[in-house]
Amino acid sequence: MFSVKSIYKYGNSDIRLSNIQQFEGTTTFTPFSAKFVMAGKEVYHSGRKKTEVTGNMYLLGNAATESSITIDSYIPVKGICIDLAPELIDEVAGYHFNHDVNSFTLKGKEAYTKYNAASTNLGMAFSRLQPLLNHTATKTEELFYMLAECMLKDRMDIYTRINRLDAVKEETRLRLYSFINDARNYIDSHFLEDITLQTLAGEANISSYHFIRLFKKTFGLSPYQYILKKRLSFADELLKEGSSVTDTAYLSGFADIASFSKAYKKQYGVAPTFRFKQISNF
């Protein structure tokens, strides 16, 4: 099965929906593109870098990106590709952002990066977009402006993080950020597992000590704090769904109820038993 169709278009910007079982060939990121996987797996190759994009992940690229793609699945891989025209990015950036961020978005080689949709403004916009697929009442112009604004907010955050890193050469800062972002993506996909510092440093291709310093400088949290925050957020959602405190603690990766309760209260200001009672009474 191979199906690609344009579902929304505004000027030179476009949103396409794809359902593909098998494909191998080149793919374009022109002039700035986000390739989001709703279900299945797409494998991209750019130079020596292999990037697997699975459900709820997406890959960014721009005109500087050269990449090929491989899809090989029994079940069609569902995806959304968003192409944003430079004139649209220029217009939105002119209101909210500076020239450096705009140039960084359209020309920077760092643009070729994978992200977890749950961790970015653009990813959250993807989530809001899915129910609108094939919805003819959608105001197309507003939709593209919203996507461009979300994407530029993310780029501003990335631009700021990269420039925090202690390296004289821009190329070195970009490479370090790419390594650290790969490690964060690994955490986002495995935070319920027993992740070691050595595993994360291996994902980033640097020493454990260097990894801790760079991760905290980039994201404002240590790797342990970031994992804990992800687990507590997951636990809070379970409690809201009616899961018991005991089940929530173990499903969220905590060794025991006591450590979970202490961490939860520190993060949210109330004990998990109180949150569970709130939901139960409601």
Results as ranks from 00 to 15, higher is better:
258 A>F: 11
271 A>L: 12
193 E>D: 11
263 A>L: 05
48 R>Y: 09
22 Q>C: 06
24 E>H: 14
212 I>S: 08
240 K>F: 04
237 E>F: 09
279 I>S: 14
31 P>V: 04
1 M>L: 08
34 A>I: 11
187 I>A: 07
59 L>W: 05
38 M>V: 14
162 I>Y: 02
146 M>A: 09
169 K>E: 11
87 E>A: 11
181 N>P: 00
104 F>H: 09
86 P>S: 03
211 F>W: 10
72 D>E: 15
68 S>Q: 08
62 N>A: 12
255 A>P: 01
206 I>G: 05
274 F>I: 14
140 T>K: 13
223 P>N: 08
87 E>C: 11
73 S>P: 05
282 F>T: 10
141 E>R: 13
145 Y>L: 13
213 R>I: 08
146 M>G: 06
226 Y>A: 03
14 D>E: 11
269 G>K: 12
219 F>N: 10
117 A>M: 03
171 E>S: 14
69 I>D: 05
3 S>N: 12
61 G>H: 04
158 I>Q: 12
203 E>T: 10
125 A>R: 01
239 L>F: 11
271 A>I: 02
255 A>V: 02
208 S>P: 09
214 L>I: 04
103 S>C: 11
269 G>D: 14
207 S>P: 12
57 M>E: 15
6 S>H: 03
212 I>N: 06
171 E>W: 09
36 F>V: 01
95 Y>T: 05
197 L>Q: 02
271 A>G: 10
263 A>R: 06
38 M>G: 04
93 A>P: 04
254 F>D: 00
197 L>R: 00
197 L>Y: 01
169 K>H: 13
69 I>C: 12
274 F>Q: 14
19 N>T: 07
15 I>F: 11
30 T>A: 09
216 K>Q: 10
142 E>W: 02
54 T>M: 08
13 S>V: 10
102 N>L: 15
240 K>Q: 10
173 R>Q: 12
158 I>W: 00
220 G>H: 02
123 G>F: 02
163 N>Y: 07
274 F>P: 02
192 L>H: 02
57 M>K: 14
193 E>H: 15
90 D>E: 15
99 H>R: 14
178 S>W: 01
183 A>M: 09
239 L>G: 06
219 F>H: 07
57 M>C: 10
190 H>K: 05
241 E>F: 00
